[in-house]
Design a protein around this nucleic acid. Structure first.
Lengths: 172, 172
DNA sequence: ATCTACAGTTCGTTTTTTGAACTGTCAAAC
DNA sequence: GTTTGACAGTTCAAAAAACGAACTGTAGAT
């Protein structure tokens, strides 16, 4: 499977992973949520190579996750700001942080705490069901095909190579 | 920054990303949650190279996310099963799927639906505050250092170059 | 005139990933 | 009793991605 195909898989996870599923992209997004906006800011916070950083930022802009906004003329300079689509990644970020808080901390405890201003307390993110409001466990969930599931196979595909004859052993 | 260092960063996101933050690992985990357990199962579902798959599975076992359980003697064969630590990744997976459902679907709609058996409805995952139960928005959260934050600077680090005065220039 | 800040780009080297075949055990088929 | 197939890997050369370090270019500060 190539990465181009991945983006077209009928799977929301695959498609999302195709966009944000690499280490540097996730770290760049972490910085975005910590209010970093500028090239040098990302570079020095992460130690990423400038080449990669430029590439990843471009990709995030192409995907509509960041917006490239000018903040000064002459020399033209831009900031990278999260769009709404980007802000919507927050639950993913928080879920990742929370797993780390639960399973990857050392004896000293959490590196960061999160204060929910609405209620004034440090909190953990909890994933609940949109319908009943209860926390969701993996075992309580049944997954089934939706309208965008892989379409029924077309005739052409039906004729497509049945699983290749595996001439794996001592061939030729 | 090398990946070894990443695992030791005082940041739960960095540590988590060091473990699961690459494309194949995330896809392997997707398969795990879809009940795939065996080498061939992962390989044929994902099209990952066997070499990489073996490597990634080893790493996930080392990290305690999967358990390698024998399911037959002679030839010894093993299954890869999610541990509790692995099951705890579920909110991350669901958050990723949900973002994809929101921002990456085509006109046909979602590839997969998730039924919450407890309430009998198809649902979306919602991230709420553990303290007040309300959905959390990025803007409502204030991040601050916790007990495991970067240790106080050692002497050597104190001697490191202080940030220099910033040059100002005309704004846009 | 020189230095520094910023936002990249270029390019040669190293590391990772890929693709394809190979190894080895055992059961069933021929 | 030899061959075939399923399974779970390992090996290795070649291709792709990432790294590091230097370079480009604009402009304010010294």
């Amino acid at each position: 499977m190539k990465w181009k195909e991945l983006e077209e898989e009928p799977c929301s996870m695959a498609r999302t992973i195709a966009v944000i599923g690499d280490r540097w992209t996730l770290l760049i997004l972490r910085e975005c949520f910590l209010r970093t906006r500028r090239f040098e800011g990302f570079q020095s916070a992460l130690g990423i190579t400038r080449h990669l950083l430029a590439e990843r930022l471009k990709k995030l802009v192409r995907q509509g996750i960041l917006r490239r906004v000018p903040y000064q003329e002459s020399p033209k300079r831009h900031e990278y700001i999260l769009t709404q689509k980007g802000l919507d990644l927050y639950p993913i970020m928080m879920a990742i942080v929370h797993w780390g808080d639960t399973h990857m901390v050392d004896e000293r405890g959490r590196p960061l705490l999160h204060l929910h201003r609405n209620c004034g307390k440090n909190f953990d993110p909890v994933m609940v069901c949109s319908e009943c409001g209860e926390p969701v466990l993996a075992k309580e969930v049944h997954t089934h095909p939706g309208p965008g599931a892989r379409r029924p196979l077309a005739q052409k595909e039906m004729e497509a190579p049945a699983p290749k004859p595996k001439a794996r052993r001592k061939a030729a």
